[in-house]
Simulated assay, not measured.
Amino acid sequence: MLWNKYDWPALVATFALIVLVRESCVWLMGLFAHPELGNLLGLLLLLIILIIWRKIKPLPMRMLDANTHIMKESAFAFLPVSAGSVIMLMHLGDELPWFLFILLFSTLVPLWLYAQMAKRWMSLDK
């Protein structure tokens, strides 16, 4: 049965944590007249919270499993964005090579840095 497959309390708690941090940051940035920066601040704040938590004690496996389920199931949310991106790319014309260079550079460098950090953190856990 599909309903028994998931750890619903962990999923709800993870969603609540994400929404609470994000909405708090959007509200806070709204006070500074820049609510569009709330998502970025929320992402950074959540990352900082999880890093500090990880330094104090390990993250609960239930939370990690819930995060894995959320990431797997949310992949389909990006399909409309992908379709819009393809339409936009067709209209770039001569600017397409520069756009693709910037896109690849701004994606690959952070991913490479993240992989290096993850490799270092994983080797410290042993």
Rank of each mutant, 00 (worst) to 15 (best):
A33I: 01
L2F: 11
K72D: 11
G42H: 01
L64K: 02
L113I: 12
K55M: 13
I48G: 12
L108H: 03
L92A: 10
F78W: 11
P9W: 00
F76S: 14
L20M: 12
K55L: 08
L43V: 13
L111T: 09
S123T: 12
L113T: 06
P97M: 09
E73S: 11
N4Q: 14
D94V: 08
M29D: 06
D7S: 05
M63K: 00
P35G: 02
V26S: 03
P9T: 00
M29I: 02
V81A: 15
L47S: 08
L89G: 12
N67P: 01
G38N: 01
V86E: 07
L104F: 14
I51M: 09
D125Q: 13
I56P: 00
L50H: 01
W98P: 00
G30Q: 04
L100G: 05
G84C: 13
V12H: 01
P60N: 13
A16F: 07
L43C: 11
H34P: 00
C25S: 09
H69S: 10
W8G: 01
F78T: 05
V19N: 05
M63N: 00
H69K: 03
L92N: 08
S74F: 12
S24D: 05
D65W: 05
L50K: 03
L59D: 00
G42C: 03
F101M: 11
I102V: 15
F78I: 07
V86N: 05
F105H: 06
L41P: 00
A66T: 00
I87G: 05
Y114Q: 11
L41T: 03
M63F: 13
L104G: 14
L100Y: 03
A118Y: 09
W98I: 04
D125N: 09
T68W: 04
V21L: 06
T107W: 06
L111R: 06
Q116Y: 09
N39A: 15
I49V: 15
K57Q: 13
A13W: 02
D65I: 00
R54I: 05
L41S: 03
M61H: 09
M29H: 06
M61I: 14
M29P: 03
K72G: 08
M122V: 08
L89I: 11
I18K: 02
E23S: 09
L17H: 06
F78D: 02
I102D: 13
